[in-house]
Structure formats: structure tokens, C-alpha cells
């Protein structure tokens, strides 16, 4: 990175900005996608484990809980930039390189897992303990209890947390851009920051805002769809035969639908 500053010489023409940003956006999506898959696969079991090692859990074990809790807290307490630098030897050992997407995925996964484990733990904590008792007395095995009486009941809350986590990972991917991981962050740093190219800077900001807003919207939708008393209204809307596509008339049908739900519940 040259660091050459000029307000005329290096500016990318507006017409070329999409060609610059689209592949970068693709890189970001790939990076975040891979990381979130790993985070989900590791974080859910790890969160369930730490929740059930705690006092009152299925495998209550104070020592194991303390150790695991400390490890996760350490992972959570390092600023991402520091974590990324600190584990370079480990990253190189796993991926054989310390630049590019593979190199970014390792520290991002570690930070994401630590984050998501706490989110899962917190979500499970809000599920009534009585349900675990119900499942146990119905003859469930520990795995069945965790699956049906803990995780399944916490799904909307976990999806809400997953949304937050995904957005945090988009932000981390931008930080990872500084070690040449590619993606939107890399473009923002090399063109916008180093070369004072305000056009590109602005474009990356717009892309990031749209990306984050889209993730949030999808997350909110999913949370609604997986919460029975919220989903009832959504389902009724969907079931309507293809009416006018504008949202106003369908919103008008929503309120009587929710009203009738509450009436039948009373």
C-alpha cells in the first residue's frame, strides 16, 4: 500500500466502481458465509455444553464449567485486530498462509465462536427449567432433552443472536481486509482510506449498510416465523390468494387476524 495521497490522480471513475465492488462483495459473502457455518456448527454444541455444565444443568460440573467459561471469556476479551495478529502462527499452521480469505477465516471463526457460544448460553438460560424436568420425566435422553426442551424452545432467540453475530462478522471481515483478506473492507481501506477516494469510500459504505440491513431484515423475519404467536399473523398473510402486491391492504388484514388470535386465546 503506497499511501500516496492525491485528490485527483487515483480516483476510480464512477462507472468502474461496481466492477471493483461486486467481486469484493462476493469475497465478503464467502468469508462471512464460511465463518458463520463454522460458528453455528461449533457454537451451538459448545453453548449447550457450557449451559449444562453450569449448576443445575444436565452435566453439572463446576471445574469444567469454570475452565470452559474462562477460555471463552479470553476469546471474547481480545480486540479482533489483536486476536488476528496474536494467532498468526496458529493460522499459518491450519491454513498454510497468513494472507487472503483462508487466513481471515481462522481468527474470525475463533472470535465468532466465542461470541456465539455466549449467545446460545444466554438464549438457553431464558428457556423455563420446568421444560427440562418435563422432558426428563417423559423419559428423554440428555441429547433429546437438549434438542427438544432447550435448543428447540430457544430457536427464535438463537436466530436473533445469530443475526447480531453475522453482522459482527461482516464488521470483522472489514477489519480482516487490512491483512489483505479481500472483500469490501479491503476495498474500503486501500481505495477509500489510503487513497482518499471518496467515491469508493461512499460506495463501500452504502454496500455495507445495505448488506447489514438485509441481514437484519432476514433475521427479524426468521425470528417471527419461528415464534408461534408471531408466526400466526405472518402465515395468514401468506395464505391470502395472490392479491394486490402493495403492502397496505395486506397490513389491513393483519390486525383483525391478530385480534381473532387473541380472542381465541382468552
Amino acid at each position: 500500500m503506497s499511501g500516496v495521497a492525491s485528490d485527483t490522480g487515483f480516483n476510480v471513475p464512477v462507472a468502474q466502481i461496481p466492477a471493483l465492488l461486486l467481486p469484493a462483495l462476493g469475497d465478503t459473502l464467502i468469508m462471512v458465509g464460511i465463518v458463520m457455518t463454522i460458528v453455528l456448527l461449533v457454537g451451538v454444541p459448545l453453548g449447550s455444553l457450557i449451559h449444562n455444565l453450569a449448576p443445575g444443568g444436565l452435566f453439572e460440573n463446576r471445574a469444567a464449567h469454570t475452565v470452559l467459561s474462562w477460555v471463552i471469556s479470553i476469546g471474547r476479551s481480545l480486540p479482533f485486530l489483536i486476536l488476528m495478529a496474536a494467532i498468526v502462527p496458529f493460522t499459518r499452521f491450519v491454513t498454510g498462509t497468513n494472507i487472503g480469505i483462508p487466513a481471515a477465516v481462522v481468527p474470525m471463526s475463533i472470535a465468532g465462536i466465542a461470541f456465539f457460544t455466549r449467545i446460545v448460553e444466554n438464549s438457553l438460560r431464558s428457556v423455563p427449567v420446568a421444560l427440562t424436568r418435563v422432558a426428563r420425566s417423559s423419559g428423554a435422553s440428555p441429547i433429546q432433552i437438549i434438542r427438544t426442551a432447550q435448543l428447540s424452545e430457544a430457536v427464535p432467540s438463537i436466530i436473533g443472536g445469530l443475526t447480531i453475530n453475522t453482522i459482527a462478522m461482516i464488521e470483522y471481515s472489514a477489519i480482516a481486509g487490512t491483512i489483505g483478506a479481500g472483500g469490501i473492507g479491503y476495498v474500503a481501506v486501500t481505495y477509500g482510506y489510503d487513497r482518499f477516494d471518496n467515491g469508493v469510500m461512499l460506495a463501500t459504505i452504502v454496500v455495507l449498510v445495505v448488506l447489514v440491513a438485509t441481514v437484519q431484515l432476514l433475521g427479524d423475519r426468521l425470528v417471527r416465523a419461528t415464534t408461534p404467536h408471531a408466526a400466526a399473523a405472518v402465515l395468514r398473510l401468506r395464505r391470502r390468494p395472490s392479491g394486490p402486491s402493495s403492502s397496505r391492504p395486506s397490513r389491513a388484514t393483519e390486525s383483525p387476524a391478530t385480534e381473532s388470535t387473541t380472542r381465541s386465546a382468552s
Binding site: 420446568a130 424436568r133 417423559s138 423419559g139
Partner: peptide
């Protein structure tokens, strides 16, 4: 014990239902 529990049916105070089922 897990098998034996099935011989006793338990009715809990009214908060014992799974909300997403």
C-alpha cells in the same frame, strides 16, 4: 431409570408445555 420414569406420568403446574409445539 430413564426407562422406569416412563411408568410414572407426571402432570406439572400449567407452565409445562413447549411453546413452539
Amino acid at each position: 431409570l430413564r426407562v422406569a420414569r416412563r411408568r410414572i406420568g407426571t402432570i406439572f403446574q400449567s407452565d409445562g408445555l413447549f411453546s413452539r409445539r
